[in-house]
Design a binder for these strands. Sequence first.
DNA 1: ATGTATGCAAAGTATTTGCACAATC
DNA 2: GATTGTGCAAATACTTTGCATACAT
Lengths: 143, 143
Amino acid sequence: MNYESCLKEKKIKITRGRVVILNIIYNSLQPITADFIYETSVDQGNNIDLSTVYRSLELFASKDIVDKFDLGDGKYNYKIKEYKHKHKIECSCCHKKVEIDCPMIPIEELIKNKTGFVLLEHELNMKAVCQDCLKKISENNEK
Amino acid sequence: MNYESCLKEKKIKITRGRVVILNIIYNSLQPITADFIYETSVDQGNNIDLSTVYRSLELFASKDIVDKFDLGDGKYNYKIKEYKHKHKIECSCCHKKVEIDCPMIPIEELIKNKTGFVLLEHELNMKAVCQDCLKKISENNEK
DNA sequence: ATGTATGCAAAGTATTTGCACAATC
DNA sequence: GATTGTGCAAATACTTTGCATACAT
């Protein structure tokens, strides 16, 4: 099965619960909540305990299978992590570089919620200073 | 007083609690939680009830005085909304435009937490399609 | 067979709310 | 003085956890 190979890849033990949960997330176009997943599993007759839902979601998030984010309503939403490109940030001072996972997923959802606009592409350029250089700068200022 | 004029501008009634809370947020360099504000008010001897803290923060957020966001740990952080520039999004299809408040504040905090890098500038370009055009496109596909 | 996952029930944490009293304009 | 804010206590919402049993490899 489709979902099972996804789990195998990540060395996650395949269980009925995890397959059901992953299936529900895959088949949802919108980001969904833990409770929605629980309710859907009940409706399907594939009753999974809510605590199992939370435990599985936590596992999936830690393995980069799903994105977990808050849309401002005090609960988390989950969706399949479709593309996971990175963004590079370079320190303007020492030119050290770090990579971060694209942070735009929750923003895309927020924009969709607020304006109805669905993002197709984004370009994000950031200028930043790293901790080390920040410290050096503030030490020099003290002299 | 400084904070009072900020409240007056927004037509918010000036009370001891609100001034204390605003003062605590203003004097914090980091984003802080409701509970931290409560504890700080207690330490200062300006004891404000936790429910008042929440009610005030909600009010401030609705009046664009503070930013409210989640850093992934199940509680909200608050900080003064310093600059509130906008980003324009244009529909790639009908060229309708919408403006949104800059969505980068929570992302800046996340990056600071994860990498230590402090953002100085960002440039964000987005391509999107509006609801109306999305509908038209999917209707045409059905024909 | 061993280690891991699950259900159940209970606990924990963050946030919200109703109400009587107090403070502000 | 009318309206709005506050403290207190209780409720709610979401998420986590301990433990005994069930399951996957």
